[in-house]
């Protein structure tokens, strides 16, 4: 399996990463190395192995439908780079 420069640009776009033109060949090469390494797993014959749903062989971890105290608004907003008294503020996401 190998990825092209175009694939890397596409993935960067999905991850909202802005890459410089000169970074692309290097990142493509690195990503391919990683993928080739992971590819070794395909050498194993897994036809008889059930897919693993979760590394813990557990099911049904639930909580009852009960209220817990929420954070105060001040705490909730404390790490926001931009905020008003009541809201998180982000750059405009739709055109008015």
């Amino acid at each position: 399996m190998s990825v092209s420069v175009k694939d890397v640009e596409y993935i960067a776009g999905l991850a909202k990463l802005r890459l410089k033109e000169e970074e692309l060949p290097k990142l493509t090469e690195q990503l391919n190395k990683i993928l080739n390494y992971v590819e070794h797993l395909n050498e194993l014959d897994t036809t008889e192995v059930e897919p693993l749903a979760h590394p813990l062989e557990m099911k049904n971890v639930f909580r009852p439908d009960e209220l817990k105290t929420s954070l105060s608004r001040e705490k909730a907003l404390a790490n926001a780079p931009q905020r008003t008294d009541e809201y998180f503020t982000v750059p405009k996401v739709v055109r008015r």
Binding site: E86, Y87, F88, P91, K92, V93, R96
Partner: peptide
């Protein structure tokens, strides 16, 4: 919930209520 249209929202921002 994103709030865009209320009068108290600046023209270049969106407010977020989680």
């Amino acid at each position: 919930k994103s709030v865009h249209d209320e009068a108290y929202v600046g023209s270049e921002e969106t407010l977020i209520d989680l």
